[in-house]
Write a protein that binds this DNA or RNA. Sequence first.
DNA 1: ACCGTCGTAGCAAGCGCTTTCTATCGGTGA
DNA 2: TCACCGATAGAAAGCGCTTGCTACGACGGT
Lengths: 354, 354
Amino acid sequence: MTVTLADVAARARVSPATVSRVLNGNYPVAASTRERVLRAVDELDYVLNGPASALAAATSDLVGVLVNDIADPFFGIMAGAAQHAIGDGAPGRAGGEKLAVVCNTGGSPERELTYLTLLQRQRAAAVVLTGGAVEDADHIAATAAKLARLADAGTRVVLCGRPPVPAAGEAVTAALTFDNRGGGKRLTEHLLTLGHRRIGYIAGPAERTTTRHRLEGHRAAMEAAGLGGRGLDRLTVHGRYDRRSGYDATLELLRREPRLTAVVAANDTVALGACAALRDQGLRIPDDISVAGFDDLPFSVDAVPALTTVRLPLYEAGARAGRLATGTEAPPPGGIATIGGELMVRASTGRPAS
Amino acid sequence: MTVTLADVAARARVSPATVSRVLNGNYPVAASTRERVLRAVDELDYVLNGPASALAAATSDLVGVLVNDIADPFFGIMAGAAQHAIGDGAPGRAGGEKLAVVCNTGGSPERELTYLTLLQRQRAAAVVLTGGAVEDADHIAATAAKLARLADAGTRVVLCGRPPVPAAGEAVTAALTFDNRGGGKRLTEHLLTLGHRRIGYIAGPAERTTTRHRLEGHRAAMEAAGLGGRGLDRLTVHGRYDRRSGYDATLELLRREPRLTAVVAANDTVALGACAALRDQGLRIPDDISVAGFDDLPFSVDAVPALTTVRLPLYEAGARAGRLATGTEAPPPGGIATIGGELMVRASTGRPAS
DNA sequence: ACCGTCGTAGCAAGCGCTTTCTATCGGTGA
DNA sequence: TCACCGATAGAAAGCGCTTGCTACGACGGT
């Protein structure tokens, strides 16, 4: 039924060992023999049996890329870049080709662990974890343990846009983290500079690192401006990283403080929802109220008005993570690199009305 | 170093066969024995060796989901839904859990084939192909052949948002196709009804089925209104499915026909680019010119003005494809189901000025 | 009390490939 | 001319798991 190495060997009148060596190209095989084998492979339309070779060689060419939400371009862009870098990593001979697969955790710690186990099962060559992590002690411990297990099974572990795992130290090959705190700080400073004082903040899910860091940056800026204290809590609303959440949170913010002059959203998608809510309330942006996002996703520049936001080099980061995962690029010193964001001032922010 | 089935067996004082059966749960094992085994698994922190079991069982729990562009929510939504449906397909015992992985082809036929081969290598349980296909005879033949090969290796093949492969007939388990033609037609009819006559069309890449079908629908509507002929070609511009392409194409259309009263875009992303271009030209939407998109991606309702478009039930389609891939749902009669789009009339279209 | 059965568990033969070790052969330098 | 060597190719031993078949008690019907 299915063609095996032995069939190819028979056809090429050589031993299976020779065929294997031709295919893997890491052993001297006479040119004439090689050609004969290759022809047989072609004629028989032979396809290597992945599991069998993974079993025998104790390695596989699978690279897993874990994302929180595949429908969100934030992850899509990073994953696409990583996959690209990985697929083209060693385009040379067979075996150099890695299969990058992206796994959607939906933000659930359990699914993340499940996928990690599944990848461990497959003896994945590398794993790339993207996006913020959940800050639950149990989960962090479980993840760290799993990563350690993976690492000493030879799987490379790369973090992209996620803070280094505290306990997993040596397990992680490299960690690329975004400067969410700094970006959040600069964004709010921009608003403060424009003269805003009553600034609402729409945060993401409370337990995620990304959420916390961006919020911390915001608060640091507020406090530095003498606007700290309890007022901050009143003007902060948590929600999911989606449009709807931004819409609802904005309404809530307006309810708490009708004289709000600016809203900072956890990310661009949320900001879009916020804009919609504001418009529905009859408020003009930025005349009546300013809005800012985070990430600078592709659609943000086309929003009306164009969104002021913090640009994160998602594509570059993903590509770099991919290269680190394939070992094409050397890890940064210390294994950790922080990637900064760039403040993009656009039309959605302006001076407060009064 | 690594724990194997045999280790677990030794620890539980049973044979490897028994352990295997406990883990796969498809053979009677006494409760007490089972428990002992499970405990050993736990204590040893055993993880099944995927390749080994795939080799022995000649099947794997991998399901591949191929997408053209993972950074595009159009695909992200479908892929996420499929992955969800697949992962939760048989959450019962181990083994029922499938690993859905998404592979990003970047729209390249070669990469598509490469991934298909890679999945074939892994003896994937199923493959889901999403999005339009490239209409190149060679590639279609190659794909059909590959799918046939996969199919008779026992891999289920599901098409989602892609027209049935002509030559692959029996190879395909099920095909879910979007009624792009009908949607395109209705969209243009809507514009015609409003009174538009000079309607520009921004199409996607020429060689893709999705592009062709949507365009055909548009033209059918135009012709039915007596607006056929060569004028259509003049008012059609091809480009990629991205924002930038929409921007550029719009400028080109305006150059060709300054008196344009409406622009229909290949999809929402392109439409957004079109809106940006029009705004930059000082044109008001919909007062001076109407714009329509396709897909109804999440951000479309938040665009300003909200985008008139054709809603495609992306999530539902993806989920269904996932279920078909896992065999959780029976294929539609004939293996083919056409999914209709719903015209969403919003603020970006209105009566022409004059 | 005997034998067919049912319920469990073990044996052992692979699954298809990689890789170490060994064999072979045409040179080569002395 | 002969021992020796480099370059290739083959033999065979697994890699860790699944599964068909066999083995073995304990039951229950007659």
